[in-house]
Each structure stands twice: as C-alpha cells, then as structure tokens.
Amino acid sequence: MKRLRSLTTNVLPPLLFFALVLCAWQAAVSLFGIEPFLLPGPLLVAQAIADNLPRLLSATLLTASGALLGFVLSFAFGFLVALLFSQSRLIERSLYPYAIFLQTMPIVAIAPLIILWIGYGLQGVVAVSFIIALFPVIANTTDGLTRVDPHILDFFALNKANRWQVLFKLRVPGAVPQMLVGARISSGLSVIGAIVGEFFAGYGTEDFGLGYLIILTNGQAKTDYLFACILFCTLLGLGLFTTVGSLSNFLLRRWTGAPE
C-alpha cells in the first residue's frame, strides 16, 4: 500500500510530464513542418526504434559489456590503489597528483592514443571506460580508508591490534559507504567512457556498439535513428546507475538501521 502511494507520488508526475513534452514535441514538428533530418518527431523516433530493434539491442549489449568491464576493472584497481595509499602517506603524496592528472586529462584527447596502443575492439573500449571511471573510486575509497574516528583507532591500539587487523577489521569495512559513493559515480562515467571509446575504437561493420552507431547514423543523416541511439545510451547509463544504487542501499542497510 505504501509502495503504491510512493509510486503515485514519485513516479506518476514525471511520467505525465514526459508524455506532455512528447505531445508538444510532436505537435511542434507537425505544425511548423520541421525537416525530419533536423528534428524528427517522437513518432518517427518510435518507428526507428521498432525498425532497428535487434540492431539497437545488440549494440546496447556490446556497449554495456564494455562499460561493465571498464567499471569492474576501475573498481578493483582503484580499490587496490586506495589500499596502497592508505598504508603509506609517502606513496599517497607521491602518486596522488598523477591520479588527479589522469582525471583532468581530457579523455577525448588521449583516446586515439589508447586505441593506437591497445588496439581496436573491446579492449580499447574497456580501456577508455576504465580510465574515465578510475579516479572517483580512488579518491572516495582513499578518503574512506584514511578518515577513521580517532577514538576507534585508540580502541584498536588499546587492544594491541596489529596493522592488518586495523586495515581489515576497521578501515576496509568502515570505507564501504565511501567506496559505494565512488562506485555510483564511476558506474555512470563508465558508460560515457565506453561510448567515447567506441567513437574511436569502433568494432567493425558487423558487430558494433552504440557509440559507433551514433557516428554511423549521424553520418547518414538518419536523425530519427540517432535519437533512438541516444535514448538507448541514456537508458543504459540509468540502468547501471540504479543497479549500483540499489546494491549500495542493500549493502548499507546495517548502517542506516533499515530492517533486514
């Protein structure tokens, strides 16, 4: 019952608004006779989706696997780097500027270089996605591992805890909320990374992802198809983001006191 009410108060209004925008959009396109290659109406976009559904789905799947691999790799590697940073101030001070450097370097500028070194296809796409998604994991996990209540550290010291006990019984579990914040940000970024990667890395004319499809449809002035690609990109990003979000709420239920 409560679920139903939250559905009607939270989900219904934005959906209604969306339907309203679609109607206005379609009306404007028909009324002013806008060329479909400039701005196709929602009906044309829907038609494009229906016509190209298998292609769109296989492209989304390929982009999703690139993004997911990039995300998982960035999370694993970022966690290890943060673990290293938390163990030595010297290492952190020496390497952290380069992590920031990696973050501020425009990925679009170095993507061709990555492809040159790593090659076309999935590995190139994953590499770009990985690099884009890495920094938030490093920054948030390092923060979580190093910011510990000093009184709890005193408590561990009083009980003669060794370095490993402090790390694995205190710092790592204590950093979980921060790690998940980082994961949420990187999950969205990894999708952007995969699409940017596909702009450059493509796959081939047989098997390709959404990024390649965007370039292709744009080049052929199939704007309705392009709109369909953009919609699928957005849905993919949203899907990954909400999955990580729900996973994080589930993992943190003990922190917040939510019923198990």
């Binding site: 209540d149 009184h151 009083l158 003669k160 205190l170 979980v176 003990r254």
Partner: peptide
Amino acid sequence: DPLGLAFVFQDATLLPW
C-alpha cells in the same frame, strides 16, 4: 599492561557493520 585496561569514550564508538 594496556590489556588489563579498558576505555569507554564519549561516543559509543561502535562499528556500525
């Protein structure tokens, strides 16, 4: 010997997990 000694802090300082 610190092991014969226990400390109760201002905050409960429990581990939430």
